[in-house]
Amino acid sequence: MSDRIILAIETSCDETAAAIIRNGHEIVSNVVSSQIESQKRFGGVVPEIASRHHVEQITIVIEETLEKANMQPSDLTAVAVTEGPGLVGALLIGINAAKAFAFAHNLPIIPVHHIAGHIYANALVQPMQFPLLALVVSGGHTELVFMKEHGSFEVIGETRDDAAGEAYDKVARVLNMPYPGGPHIDRLAHEANEGVEFPRAWLDDTYDFSFSGLKSAVINYKHNMDQRGEEIIPEQVAKGFQDSVVEVLTTKTVRAAKEFNVKQVIAAGGVSANKGLRSSLEQAFEKEKIPFTVPPLKFCTDNAAMIGAAATYMYEAGVRGDLSMNGIPGKELKSWI
C-alpha cells in the first residue's frame, strides 16, 4: 500500500495550525501559531479577534508546514480540516482555506470532528487498543468516550454545565491569575500541602460531570473570606479546587474503564496537560493494571497533527467532504463507521 499523506488544518479556537501526517502516526511536520499573547489582553478568547488572526496567519502556517516537510501539494493524498465544534468564525477560515487548497490541487477533503482529533492525538504516540475509553478534558469539553473500534464513538458521560478547563479559567480569574489560568492553578496547587475543602459533584451513578457548583463554592469562599477581612491563601484554594476536579475525573474514569472492560484508557484535550490530573490517572490505572496513555504536552492542546491522525482513519473508511462543507460550531461526535 502506498503512503497516505494528509495535510491537516485546525482553526477551531485560537491556534492557527497545520500539519502533515504520514500513514496516520508519523508527524512529518507540525506548525502551531498561537494567539495567546493577543488574547491575553482580553482575559479570554474573543471570537472576532480569533477570526482576524486566523485570516492573517493561515497561508503562512500552511506554507511553513509544507516547507518543513519538504513536500509539494502533489505529494499529498488528501486535505483534512476541523469541521467543528468550535468558534464558527474561526472554523470558517480553516475550512475555506482547506477547500480552496483542495480545489486548486484536485485533492479529496476530509471533515474532522475536533474531539475525534484530540482522541486520535494518542495514535501519534502508539497504536490504539480497543475497546478503549477516552477522557476528553479541555476548555470546551469534558467527556468520557467509549470506542469499540476505530471510528466508533459512544459518549457515555459529559459535563452538564461548565467544562473542566472553563472552571479552571474562572477560578484562575478569582485568584487574579492571567489567562489561560489552568497551568497557573496546577502550579499553585503543587505548592500547597493542604487544600481548602471544596465539594465534589458525583451526580449519582452517571458518568456525567458538573463543575459549576465547585466554581461557585470557590467564589463564595473568597467572598466570605473578603467579608471577614481575611486573606485567602491562593495555593490552598488552588489545591482544594484541583483536588476536587481530579478526584471526580479519576474516579469516574476508573469506574467506566472497569464497567466497559477496556484494554486501554487515554486522556486527551488541553486539561490532560495538567500534571495533577496526569499523575492521578497514571497511579489509578497502574493499580488497576489497565494501560493508560496521554499524549505529549504539545499534542494535548489544539494542533493539526491530531486532526491529520484522525483523518487518516476516516480516509481509509471512505469518509469525504466536499466544497460545500460548512463550519458546524456545535457538531456532535458521531461514529464514522
Binding site: 485570516v55 497561508t59 500552511i62 468564525g89 470558517l92 475555506n96 482555506a97 487548497f101 490541487h105
Partner: peptide
C-alpha cells in the same frame, strides 16, 4: 473573511 481566505489560499498555492 470567507472571500479573502479563499482568494489568499488560491493565490498563494
Amino acid at each position: 473573511r470567507i472571500g479573502v481566505t479563499i482568494a489568499k489560499t488560491l493565490a498563494w498555492t
